[in-house]
Design a protein around this nucleic acid. Sequence first.
DNA 1: AAAATAATTTAGCCTGGACTAAATTAAACA
DNA 2: TGTTTAATTTAGTCCAGGCTAAATTATTTT
Lengths: 228, 228
Amino acid sequence: MISRKDEPFSRSIQNYLKVIYSHTRENRPVSTLGLAEALDVKPASVTNMLQKLDEFEPRLVNYQKHHGVSLTEDGEKEALRVIRRHRLIEQFLYEVLGYSWDRVHSEAEELEHVISPYFEDRLAEFLGEPAFDPHGEPIPNRDLEVTQDESIIPLSLLPVGKKAVVRRVTAGPQELLAYLGEIGLHPGKGVEVVERNPLDGTSRVLVDGMEKFFGVGVTGAVFVSVAE
Amino acid sequence: MISRKDEPFSRSIQNYLKVIYSHTRENRPVSTLGLAEALDVKPASVTNMLQKLDEFEPRLVNYQKHHGVSLTEDGEKEALRVIRRHRLIEQFLYEVLGYSWDRVHSEAEELEHVISPYFEDRLAEFLGEPAFDPHGEPIPNRDLEVTQDESIIPLSLLPVGKKAVVRRVTAGPQELLAYLGEIGLHPGKGVEVVERNPLDGTSRVLVDGMEKFFGVGVTGAVFVSVAE
DNA sequence: AAAATAATTTAGCCTGGACTAAATTAAACA
DNA sequence: TGTTTAATTTAGTCCAGGCTAAATTATTTT
């Protein structure tokens, strides 16, 4: 049994919780292997840490060996705190410091572990309590509630001919983001699928009057809402 | 011999270099004991670290057991980098996020180790390449040059009756800074010593039309330049 | 100069969070 | 169901950077 004193959770713990949270939410495998991959750490290290998190007081995850992990209420709260900081910082870097949206992630990845609650509040206020980060990901509010629009769908599922608006571009590799940014595929932009290859799902997409060709790797990461 | 690869120096190393630099510059004792005190670490730990810094490649300090330390060129450069980040961040917190000047230090103390060179540049640009932080401490420029005004003196040495302008309020305990802030004793403010007790140096000082009473603890930490 | 005190250094230990290699358990398939 | 393969866990190691206790060196006082 490990007690919590008053220090914040370590940077490492924060990362584990954050990754477990995202994997869960996106139905990605929350396996030792999957976590190890995402955290760039060896599987054995993940096992160690999960055991530790399971013994925390208060408990942060429910872990049973060989049967996976899930976050407890407390663990999820902490994960959301980290995510809120991360996305607020991204928004700041983008809006205020003029970062391109493909650069914000890595910087936020560091800062999210370091800013104080006071900084978080002041920053949120300065930014006007933003609800989304530059990629369109929702920013949990002060009470850690996440507004999620259920009506958005991946571009890969948008029927041919329907007009839609980009809502979210899920962080992929930096180069991909950089490219999508260049061609103007940001949240808010109108798009339409002109043609879709029924075999592999590859799509011809109209963006800003220009026609682009995307594989499912891209269209699966771009989320849109269908225009009325 | 310890080689440098490409990682940044550890947070701990950055702190040691920063403290050695400041102690040197302010003629405070750069002793094992003094550093331990400033770093909130035991003397034995300081000895360990100094030995390590002395073996770095490139060497960061010159250290001879029982005979003190000093920074090498490389060590000083790194210290100035940390200090530049620290003061830029303080200025940001104060000017942009609306921190009170007694709160900026502790937050900057963390962030200084985490922001990237790119962040530093963007921030400096956003702030208009400021030359001073909220306490009036000079911010090293991009080339790490520090503009130091030689003509400033501590308020404790300002002759009675001479008008002067506050230039710098050296960080003391947070409560002191908070108090000085409240009574308006910021850089830029005009002051005058009305009377000084020749025994202990205690001074009656005119600030903003109000008369205040300060011991040398305060007047030694407030630096002014005499008005022409 | 000897003795007493203060500062510094050495030696060995501890903790968090990684790692590797070996062992075990679960899953897939013949 | 037995076997092979994949995933996971255990056991023990390493490293940074702290710590304490003991030893040593410097400094001051008598």
